[in-house]
Design a binder for these strands. Structure first.
Lengths: 191, 191, 191, 191
DNA sequence: TATGAATGAGTCTTCATTCAT
DNA sequence: AATGAATGAAGACTCATTCAT
């Protein structure tokens, strides 16, 4: 990704998350990127194309980070803790990305469907860990697909609802990871 | 809500969930409702107004159902199980609503913020139950806000991702409720 | 064709012939028609659609006039004289139309091809007369298709080149008809 | 005309005739010429300039060929036959040129007017021959301007309508010349 | 209550042209 | 001589909204 394209990329994420995809105009993106409107079209086919590129790129990076961190571990439970941290941390650093993503993946249309497909490639990582954990007798019987969806939705909601709202100082990736890990692994119920 | 207004209301939910709020035109809503475009403006101030009405109505009903079901119970854990069921069941019956909601609540803008405020009135129900459970020594120490957000995101994601995608016959509200309840209360880890 | 559509129709012909199809803006057409830009799109799908409608309509009228006038006659040579007059007269009254038509029918593209197809339905009238004349032993052996194309091109050129250029008072439909008829029937050569 | 300029020239004719002047982009011309977009501007002032150059060049060559061929003859009727052949043959070899020309010379605008002026210098050749023929008592009384326009329109139409459409094997310059000559000199009417 | 023709502000997109290299 | 990234003016088109009937 060359210099100009990256400026556009960053401006687009910021602007989409601030105003939403549809209320964002190409004019605005160009302004925020410090280039002329026509330049956007030199680097991207269309406004839709910017969105797709942005979601592609985001999920790709999230997946890469997850794969790298998980690779070194053997224990499925430890992998889960790690993946919670990676996702939390990534969304914490890129909360604009998660806002854009969450605004675009729902619905019956062709576009949200396409974006969900991309997301699934990430969810599969989680599913695999769950499956592994069940084989290792570390994780209880459950439907991996449901659990993967639950993980994604849980973390994203927490981050998107919270990050957007308050800027609570104690609201940091490590604390959230701990909360979510406890919740997800041990459950809420006192034994 | 009179007959015509209800026709519009239903057409709007269906159309928003199918094409998204922005790609949906007033023309389309009118067509699907079987009325003329002008009629929409007799019953609603604007397109935004239809959306707001629709989200208001949805959250109001979800809350009502939850309050009714929970009212009879004392045990916080049972209340949680119930609320999982109510939300699952509601979203199962009204998956178009959750699609619309999930597409609109994220972002820094004034509109998503307004909708989040409405959602919070529902999340508070969950927070209260958690708090109650902690007092009853049934539920472990945790951050209620985070847990409420987690519950909402978890269930919504499962429903929105699944319902839209496959039409798995065994994918029914009761099974999902059980899965989610087990997951949330006992955690994934084998003891 | 209702009142508004007709206003647009007339403004479009005038504007296209003055500035050419591509240099004409929808704004201009709207101004000349005395309506708002959006109104154009209420009555026509697109700028291309206006052009197509206009060419359809023009050729339809030209054909109707020709058929009406020819119907009463039996002699193929008289029919030819009549058709020369009809075409000359029509183009004289609608010189803006012929300018638009002649600017659009050439080329390998899909659009000019479509317009030529429409024109052919008129040229067939001429071909039939030629064929008839040959059967009646009034007209010499020749290729009808070539002659029909020649007739059309000859008359159109004269009208388009002349009408546009000078406003010669003696330049009237009847005189041109006589010239063309003499030229076409008797040829240039002195016997 | 150097090598690069000629590549551009040829690419331009081909592309203009294929897509029309307005739908043709500088990008396309550059691609078809195998050069970069900027290079077009090294050799031509603008897109309009390419068009003008191309029409200038075409008419210049047509005129040159006509003058050369006619020069050797004395008889006006033979000159006419020759000029029909030259024009037919030229347009047959350069049908892309005639398509471009015919698409650009009509209309009230400044540009088509300018191109018509260029065309007139060719039409004058025909007018002169007619005038000469009348003096030689070989050609009947007629309006030279009208006849010249008729000749041009007739031949161009035949070529442009036919050449573009079918690739009839018997459709060759010599046969067309014969048809047109017979038609123009002796007329259609059986004596 | 309901209609639908008309509106015009707002946007995406195209593309000829420029210019530093 | 040639390149191609960058520009921004211009234009087609959309669509929420209005209003006379």
């Amino acid at each position: 990704m060359n210099k100009t394209k990256e400026k556009i990329f960053k401006a687009a994420i910021k602007t989409f998350s601030k105003s939403g995809f549809y209320k964002t105009t190409m004019e605005e993106i160009a302004e925020n990127a410090g280039v002329a409107k026509g330049t956007l079209y030199y680097h991207f086919k269309s406004k839709d194309d910017i969105l797709e590129f942005l979601i592609d790129e985001g999920i790709k990076i999230l997946k890469q980070e997850a794969i790298e961190e998980i690779g070194r571990l053997n224990n499925a439970v430890e992998k889960l803790r790690k993946i919670i941290f990676v996702q939390t941390n990534f969304l914490y650093r890129n909360h604009d990305f998660i806002i854009v993503l969450l605004s675009q993946i729902w619905g019956h249309g062709e576009v949200p469907r396409k974006f969900r497909e991309k997301l699934y490639t990430y969810l599969e990582l989680i599913e695999n860990i769950i499956r592994e954990g069940k084989e290792q007798k570390l994780i209880a019987d459950c439907d991996e697909k449901i659990v993967a969806a639950a993980f994604f939705g849980m973390i994203s909601s927490i981050l998107a609802l919270k990050v957007v709202e308050d800027s609570d100082e104690k609201f940091n990736p490590q604390d959230i990871t701990d909360s979510v890990f406890n919740f997800a692994l041990k459950g809420l119920q006192l034994q």
